[in-house]
Computed example of a mutant assay.
Amino acid sequence: MPVIVASRLGRARIKRAVWERLGQDILRLIRKPHAEVSVLLVGDRRMRRLNKQYRKRDKSTDVLAFPLQEGPGPRTVLLGDVVISVPMARRQARESNRSLDRELTVLLVHGILHLCGYDHERGIEEARRMQRRERAILRRVPIGKLVPTGAR
């Protein structure tokens, strides 16, 4: 199974099959259909801890990506891990006047592109390149019902 999905949102249930299908669609569109990605859905406190621990930023963020293919060494089918803060996604969806499902899809695409080496923080050209790629993928993936039960 190329996309493994887990949740640390308490009792909220997630629609794993929908997440897995979306992740597989994204991997197919970036021409890595056999790659493996894990996705973890978390709350703001856990995301803040992860952001502080790995990026030295003491605040929550919407998505973190932990690539496994950086640096020298043999290539593997494992791309890495994507962590998404559902509460942050909910706030951003409201601010952007879009559905939570759409926002979560955007964040998953964004996180997977980070796993593939895209990095908008490297400069304006790289940010534009990543944004173009995101838009191209988002035009082609269906927006499914991703929202965990009770997370609306």
Rank of each mutant, 00 (worst) to 15 (best):
G111R: 03
V63F: 06
E70T: 05
A6F: 15
G10Y: 14
R16P: 00
A6W: 15
V3M: 06
G71R: 08
V82C: 10
I26M: 10
P33G: 02
Y54E: 11
L100I: 08
V5G: 07
R122D: 10
R98F: 03
H114A: 01
R129S: 13
L115P: 08
D119T: 13
R49S: 03
I84E: 12
G144Q: 01
E95W: 11
R139K: 15
M47V: 08
D101M: 01
R75K: 15
G71V: 10
T149Q: 15
S96P: 00
V5M: 11
M47I: 10
L50Y: 10
L79F: 13
T61P: 12
K15H: 15
A93Y: 03
R55N: 06
V82E: 12
K15I: 14
G43C: 12
S7M: 15
S7E: 11
V147K: 09
L64P: 13
V147N: 02
K15V: 06
D25G: 05
P72S: 14
S60V: 03
R102E: 06
E70L: 04
Q53V: 00
R122N: 04
M47Y: 13
L104V: 07
T61C: 14
W19V: 05
D81Q: 14
H110D: 08
I14G: 02
Q131I: 10
R31W: 04
Q69S: 04
V109C: 01
R135P: 02
V82A: 10
D81T: 15
V141M: 02
V82N: 03
K52R: 15
R16D: 04
R13N: 06
V106N: 08
I137S: 03
E103R: 10
L108W: 12
G150F: 06
K52Y: 13
T105D: 02
D58L: 03
M130G: 01
Q24W: 11
F66K: 09
T149N: 14
R129M: 14
M130D: 01
K145W: 05
V18Q: 02
Y118D: 04
V77R: 07
L100N: 00
T105P: 03
